[in-house]
Design a protein around this nucleic acid. Structure first.
Lengths: 248, 248
DNA sequence: CGCTAGCTTGAAACCGGTCAACTTTTGTGG
DNA sequence: CCACAAAAGTTGACCGGTTTCAAGCTAGCG
């Protein structure tokens, strides 16, 4: 579904001579800093297309779909997952505003996983062939692409270790906290846009375990959790627990 | 240690007008197929430098070292790992001839892990800044870099699932078998260049569990293992076990 | 030889999964 | 607005695979 023809009629905002990048698009922002002239920026901008909104539960792409574009989340949350032979869902990641989806598809020219909207999602779509072509003329763009790709290699290693349920949950919460904070949201209070089952499938735990860990963390005064509302009460303790996974 | 000044005096083989790429360097090979003219190939070739041999146990780079180059394994086996706060070694991967190390370092400009030689190791070193610069003029090079980076994102997800010890071990053996086969070695018989402890730290199992699974696999006629010599007797059965992890 | 590191084997403990029952929330239609 | 059903989440009891701990074994090397 990550097609060129999005549902929104306004792909690019261009206010006369001044045009504005979407504020949540990390990629564009990084390129802005590289100090290109206006004509080059415009070239880059033409490749960007805002698509959506996708409704909760709507798929953005599916495993096996031909790869044509990467996308930055502009608003909402995206979940990527695969279904293993036993029919179990393996959540690979949650993507918040400013984060990029589709990068793992480049090598095989097909998306290796499914991506689904967890709430109302709007994306910045980047045609990858065009992007790559532009990258040959704009070193900053190329560098940024390399950086994005390389980043994701490290991320995947996070959950690879054999950590306890407590460590996994702590790392999950601290990671969300940091990422929200980086986007200007409160680091101590936010909404879990994913279900307990999603969290369990991401952390490789049973849904029951997620429930129990939440309970215990709350009893121990680390967090306060009410349905999907969560508040971090003892960031330091959580961070300490998460240290073995997040490593900094 | 991944410095420009390697120990070998012959960085590049250039036989008069004809010069040859190192046969095990997947990167160079892929670029050859792109059909560039000789002067462009030479440009690429100048960036490649053979370094080593590293002795068993010798480090190639360490966590925190400034990133300057990626490298393809030419011969030998490289192990990458980090040490967690509890002092436990987490093996991130084993790299066989033809495989690329250092890709995860690009985003932070520092190596995020240690790389150590498990036996005598020779590398093809690629200066990354030069490589990136060249990529802007040779789209094939850029594409290949993107592909390599993207590939690694998927790889890390392999061990992320909560699989049984048997599945992990089967996937490990099948993966080694395939990779050796792809390089022209026997897929059914090879030497495990890493210790049981290394395997355990990679598969996130206790060393004792690795020992027990080897035992059981042998009793069931799946493999024959004698110290570090291993022979796969029932590839089909192992492959079936590994299916849930390797997914194809 | 005898030492050491790597490996193997056995017994017991434990963490998280599974199963089952229950509660709460959400969604739907009257 | 309520009634009801379905989905999501919680809680408890039990089970099983892995780890841990401890001991013994083997190969390699001075």
């Amino acid at each position: 579904m990550l097609r060129p023809n999005g549902r929104t009629p306004t792909p690019i905002a261009d206010d006369g001579d001044e045009f504005t990048f979407c504020s949540t698009c990390a990629f564009s922002a990084a390129c802005l800093e590289s100090g290109y002239d206006k004509s080059q920026l415009r070239e880059l901008h033409v490749l960007v297309e805002h698509i959506g909104p996708f409704r909760e539960g709507e798929h953005i792409f599916r495993e096996g779909d031909p790869f044509n574009a990467i996308a930055a989340v502009r608003s909402g949350t995206v979940k990527t997952y695969v279904t293993d032979p036993n029919g179990r869902e393996q959540v690979q990641g949650f993507y918040l505003p400013g984060e990029m989806i589709g990068l793992s598809a480049i090598s095989q020219a097909r998306y290796p996983c499914n991506a689904v909207a967890l709430d109302a999602v709007v994306l910045c779509r980047f045609s990858f062939p065009s992007m790559a072509a532009l990258a040959t003329r704009m070193p900053g763009v190329q560098q940024q692409l390399f950086r994005l790709l390389s980043q994701d290699i490290g991320k995947a290693a996070l959950l690879a270790g054999n950590y306890t349920a407590d460590e996994r949950m702590a790392a999950f919460l601290i990671s969300l906290s940091r990422r929200y904070a980086a986007r200007g949201f409160s680091p101590n209070r936010f909404v879990l846009t994913m279900s307990r089952t999603d969290i369990a499938n991401y952390l490789r735990l049973a849904a029951e375990s997620v429930s129990r860990v939440f309970r215990r963390f709350q009893d121990e005064g680390l967090i306060r959790v009410d349905r999907r509302d969560i508040e971090i009460l003892d960031y330091g303790a959580l961070d300490e627990l998460a240290r073995s996974i997040l490593r900094d």
